[in-house]
Design a protein around this nucleic acid. Structure first.
Lengths: 202, 202
DNA sequence: ACAGGTACATACCGCGTGGTATGTTAGAAA
DNA sequence: TTTCTAACATACCACGCGGTATGTACCTGT
């Protein structure tokens, strides 16, 4: 299961994520991405079967980044409140560190599905959906535990889960790194959002 | 200032909003929209100067819909908590009723700006930005009042505002009307989200 | 009846884009 | 040295899309 991919592969992924973020998922052309690398289309089509495959690879990275960060800090011995707060803080920090990938994912939340053409396209879509859902289940379990223990309000679990996750992902919408940014701004935002997320559950 | 537009105008706007929502803002072509109307491009280009102008008109409708619903229920005599809760409930209900428009707006939150070509394009962008900001200021004022009265936690106002608004708009991401939907589901979701939004402020 | 304008339909053009087929170069293997 | 292959660059094509120029039915006032 170890992802055996070359350096050039990663370099293309990063450049694609940034281009998709800046120009928009549909607007950014393969030529744009290649030009941002100082290369041509040949390089990209040598490593990726199609434009869709490249975009899928970028979208798949996002939940893997956050999962690799959040899964290790989960601790079932903690109270659901503390557990959630730790997870939320770690999640937001990870999002800030891999922002372009998450901004790309954001553009696919609108539900423009249903136009799956090739078989490999649908397979990639399924992989992305599973990775996303598997990561969400980490939060689903801790929220469920909190509701059963009485720490969190008992409400529709799915609605609560998605709403809180969107709240934690809010910076993906409005944040872009600025040079005149106060020291430790992102950490401060992360704390505020983790607090708000926890408060929204209680 | 009275918007003097014909029925055909509105019909095109609705069809465009639904097409932009279903196929994606960049993917939906003018021909797609015309076809969904049983017409051809000629009709659309007769009423709108360009594809961008049509998209801009759709995006401009969204904050006007919510403003027309929320502004009348604001009441400075109420406590900030009650005032916010009423506004939030009304906002979410309005969003549910004009969902396609808000799903289109969502696709422009990603910050793919900076490619303004023509002068009229930038003017439209400014109108949209002002309408959006003006509407957000309704919530900004009530949150500010709550922070000053001590009812709400004192935190970064802009971060709080945007985070709460994204929380209230969360259904735009995951909700699509379904035939097997429980009776009064949207109203229940609206109550839950308004509660969560208020809890996140305290 | 006639003129003029409104509200579209039709046909067409130019351009950008995804994709491909064909070089070209550098390094490893023999 | 020779050969093979990975890793690209280059040139090109076919297609879809935005936009426009033109045609046409219908309605309205005179």
């Amino acid at each position: 299961m170890s992802e055996q991919i070359s350096d050039s592969h990663h370099e293309i992924l990063d450049a694609a994520a940034k281009c998709f973020m800046k120009l928009g998922v549909n607007a950014a052309s393969v030529d744009d991405i290649a030009h941002s690398l100082g290369s041509t289309k040949g390089r990209i089509y040598h490593h990726f079967a199609s434009r869709g495959a490249l975009l899928g690879a970028v979208r798949l990275q996002a939940p893997e980044f956050t999962r690799r960060a959040v899964a290790p800090v989960m601790d079932d011995n903690l109270s659901p409140s503390q557990n959630f707060h730790n997870m939320a803080l770690t999640h937001i920090a990870a999002v800030f560190e891999t922002l372009p990938y998450h901004k790309v994912v954001l553009q696919h939340y609108t539900g423009l599905e249903g136009k799956s053409a090739t078989e490999s396209d649908r397979a990639m879509e399924a992989r992305i959906r599973d990775a996303k859902r598997g990561y969400e289940d980490l939060f689903r379990s801790v929220i469920h535990a909190g509701m059963q223990s009485g720490e969190f309000r008992c409400q529709n679990l799915s609605v609560t889960l998605h709403s809180v996750l969107i709240l934690l992902n809010a910076p993906v919408f409005w944040y872009s790194p600025r040079p005149d940014e106060p020291q430790g701004f992102t950490a401060q935002v992360a704390r505020q959002l983790a607090d708000m997320g926890l408060a929204a559950l209680i």
